[in-house]
């Protein structure tokens, strides 16, 4: 039985030009953990949405800062934590959109959290007082890992 352990981290300035590097790190790690071909791409998309939200909104009106993306896996869960020191934002405060109405109204944004919910099994937001930062932790269960390959 092969258990794939992942523990990686990337810190980037809040500039969307760095999204591609973060996607590459997450996709590489997810590809090692999931045998289902589309899963690594979907998890990468979920993380991209979370990080893009931070890059575009977390530091509005305050001193620009970084975003830290940590990827860990113990072989049973794939966990991604996105941390920033910007304004507090709890995604649970956002309800899922009525997509038909969304399109009729021509709304260009506001679908990122919905996509994350569609893809990940757990989503938890915490303000970590000791580090004075926001953490969004997203988990995908590894139901069929690469053991035996």
């Amino acid at each position: 039985m092969v258990q794939i352990i992942i523990d990686e981290e990337m810190i980037a300035p809040c500039d969307t030009r760095h999204l591609a590097s973060i996607r590459a790190m997450v996709k590489d790690a997810a590809t090692r953990c999931f045998s289902e071909p589309m899963m690594a791409g979907k998890i990468t998309l979920a993380v991209d949405e979370a990080v893009a939200n931070v890059m575009e909104h977390a530091y509005e009106g305050v001193e620009p800062g970084d975003v830290k993306v940590s990827v860990t896996s113990d072989g049973s869960k794939f966990c991604v934590t996105v941390a920033d020191q910007g304004v507090h934002f709890d995604p649970s405060s956002i309800s899922n959109p009525d997509i038909k109405q969304h399109v009729q109204q021509g709304k260009r944004n506001g679908l990122g959290i919905f996509l994350i919910r569609q893809i990940m099994d757990e989503i938890n937001y915490t303000f970590v007082q000791s580090k004075a930062h926001n953490e969004l932790r997203m988990v995908k269960y590894i139901s069929e890992n690469k053991q035996g390959e």
């Binding site: 949405e49 009729q104 021509g106 709304k107 260009r108 679908l111 990122g112 919905f114 996509l115």
Partner: peptide, 14 residues
């Protein structure tokens, strides 16, 4: 990503 899809959403009704 959703930002890309948002361009099509924003343009469809128009």
């Amino acid at each position: 990503s959703s930002a890309g899809a948002g361009v099509f959403i924003g343009s469809l009704a128009l």
